[in-house]
Design a protein around this nucleic acid. Sequence first.
RNA 1: GACCCUAUCGUCCAGUGGCCUAGGACACUCCCCUUUCACGGGAGUAACACGGGUUCGAAUCCCGUUAGGGUCACCA
Length: 442
Amino acid sequence: MSAPIRVRFAPSPTGYLHVGGARTALFNWLFARHHGGKFILRIEDTDRARHSEDAVQIIYDGLRWLGLDWDEGPEIGGDYGPYFQSERESIYQRYFDQLRAGGHLYVEDSGAWRFRFHRELVEVDDLICGKITFDFGNTEISPDMTIRRPDGSWIFHFVNVVDDLEMKITHVLRGEDHLSNTPKHIQLYQALNAAPPRFGHIPLILNKDGSKMSKRDQGASITSYLEGGYAPEAVRNYFCLLGWSPKDDREIMALDEIITRFELSNVNRKGAHFDIAKCDWFNAQYIQQMPAARYRELAQPWLAKAGISADPATLDPVLALEKMKVTHFREVPDRVSFFFTEDYTYDPAAVEKALHKPGALDRLAQLAECYAALEAFDAVTLEAKLKELATSLSVKPAEFIHPARVAVSGRAVGPSLYHMFEVLGKERVLARFHRTRERFAA
RNA sequence: GACCCUAUCGUCCAGUGGCCUAGGACACUCCCCUUUCACGGGAGUAACACGGGUUCGAAUCCCGUUAGGGUCACCA
């Protein structure tokens, strides 16, 4: 309890960051932040052939996008580096020699080094799963494990333990897939005359149907969220609730509240099935509640990609119009594109239904005339005037509304008509009415 | 195959022996709001895997079965 808490996320640079890995990183980060401890990032690149700059970058990008800043690790430094296993050769050699001197190792004919595992009962006191006893007493196959290949390179189990030891990791929070390896890791610590850290195994994330989540499955890769138009705060909130619960019915929670309430004892032991629909709901909720500046910030890259750029004063009123309807930021450009060009396209079905109706173009002319006389051009006035006009001509407001919507946006669906008018402004609205009448006359 | 973990609505969670004719959320259906599309509000469908115990009483404790997952690599 007295030693400062140190946890780590130790991914292998495989070219993508799996949602399960990200969630493991998140829980480690939450645990560290909750206890005022350190969160360390270590890159496990012993398999040198697979190491690439891009692969490492994907990990950094994913973690940073989720807001998981590391206190020690690549690009940050720290007192226990280097933080790439490929650069820790001399450390491994030292521990290897210690193990060898202690008589814990033997060589195979191939030249591979194996660690001699004691065939006994090993108890793991897991922070999440509780006390678990592994019986290696009468197992048929050898529990011994290779720790070094004939070519001198190191195997995961060994370097992982050595690094956790060297980096003074106090709590190892990792995926449940490592639970069965834990007794072996514990024996490695014992052979090294070191006290093992505390372990906590987090249940895995599966597909919604319960199958294992692989790279291609929807939502499996963190990159897919960056590219899918998600707000990181929303995705992070959803991930927090995958396997952890505050034990009341709160779901949308500020990060501070989650940090305060995050306890390992509240982490579930059951594997979670991933549901992208709920993740989408979180995203929509966050977007709805988002301040205009943040909303603009997240929408801007998507707008830029669609060739739309404008200053905040112009952008914000337009963006506000559709904010309540957006689920993913990628939808934004299409929803607002007609505000930024006079060359917007007309949806044929909408034209057929609203403009090719007998008298539709006349309604447009009448409404234009009415609006042209207006001083104020705000939504409230616009609505009142349109309804007044309809009443005076004894027609339904819809007779005006539908043609006007298509005239001004080219589509049958969109923002509230009057607010759309207001944002567009009198001049552009009247011009669009006029242009539409000319274009679809006769 | 051996060892280990798990088991409440389709999904995520609540429930730690009586407050449970099992609660919330997503999704789905219907209604209201809205002369667009959404948001929002309301209602509804829907679960304690099975079998034995323990107990006055079990979703909650124990055992077994079944099912799912994981590990047994010179992958991490």
